[in-house]
């Protein structure tokens, strides 16, 4: 082989200085050992202090009241109280996960990557959108559980009378408005086609007919609020000049989400009593649902 090989000087990696290195033993393992000890002690104390009984063998005939999912799913269960089951359980989480995954494709600015609160108004944006998410979610929960109307009536003697009853909660827009007969049976397949509509006993939509009030209450209004309120917040912050680039918008959106998510989890865990009625945490009682022992009030 007559190929001339030109030897290039290879940049040899510099040996790291000794004081930049951390050894597995003792530096890392010792810290891990301390952490493991702390967790063990904490769990031990918690298991002594907090009672977590296994209860009786399950009885398929009775449902505990309230019936709750594990705490980390109670945010979704809280959503289920307010909208169509497929939306709350599947569509909203899926769409939100896709949106979360799309964040880096929407904000492609590499400036200030990896820095916490990297933009000028970042801290106040986080605080304000967090507060908006917190207060807004509580307000929506209180409204949809009828508590707003109840307190207006109970504390201030305010009552909208019969004409305003439809505003008590979302569902009352279906039951308290004089919807005409045809509104709950809007045919949207032409030629009287019948697809999977043997029983006519589906949800808000059977395949042939749309129950418009049902659709409005279970899907229309929740979708409008889920999309509209965050958009409105970001638009307002943009008009105020706080949101100036895409990262700001995403920061506001994400902070608002974290606050709402926390409120939903907290509300579902600590504020939902029997029949998923809103109660204070210290009033929360669980009945095993045994006949004759269901607690009334």
């Amino acid at each position: 082989m007559a190929t001339a090989v030109v030897a290039r000087p290879v940049a040899r990696p510099q040996a790291r200085a000794r004081d930049e290195e951390v050894l597995v033993w003792p530096d890392l393992v010792f810290v891990e050992f301390i952490a493991a000890l702390l967790f063990t002690i904490t769990l031990f104390i918690l298991s002594v202090v907090i009672n977590a009984p296994l209860l009786d063998q399950a009885n398929a005939d009775v449902t505990p009241n309230p019936s709750k999912a594990p705490w980390y799913l109670l945010n979704l269960q809280e959503l289920l109280l307010h909208m169509n089951a497929a939306m709350a359980g599947i569509i909203v989480p899926t769409v939100w996960l896709i949106i979360l995954g799309a964040f880096p494709y929407f904000d492609r600015d590499t400036d200030g990557q990896g820095a916490w609160f990297g933009t000028e108004g970042a801290v106040r944006l986080t605080v304000v959108s967090g507060i908006v998410g917190f207060v807004g979610t509580w307000a929506l929960i209180l409204w949809d559980s009828g508590k707003v109307a109840f307190f207006l009536n109970d504390w201030f003697g305010l009552s909208g009378g019969d004409t305003m009853r439809f505003l008590e909660n979302v569902r009352s827009m279906q039951s308290q408005l004089p919807w005409p007969e045809w509104a709950s049976k809007i045919t949207y397949l032409p030629f009287n086609l019948k697809l999977l509509d043997g029983t006519g006993s589906g949800g808000p939509t059977t395949f042939q007919h749309l129950d418009f009030p049902g659709w409005l209450v279970e899907q229309g209004i929740p979708t409008a609020l889920l999309v509209g309120l965050p958009s409105l917040m970001i638009y307002t912050l943009w008009r105020m000049g706080w949101v100036v680039n895409r990262r700001d918008a995403l920061l506001a959106l994400f902070s608002g989400f974290v606050a709402s998510y926390g409120v939903l989890t907290l509300c579902g865990t600590a504020f939902r009593g029997q029949g998923q009625e809103l109660v204070f945490p210290w009033e929360l009682k669980v009945s095993e649902g045994i006949p004759g022992q269901e607690a009334g009030h």
Partner: peptide, 9 residues
């Protein structure tokens, strides 16, 4: 009647 799971009344 009030459902223990999601509060339907």
């Amino acid at each position: 009647f009030r459902c223990p799971c999601h509060g339907s009344t």
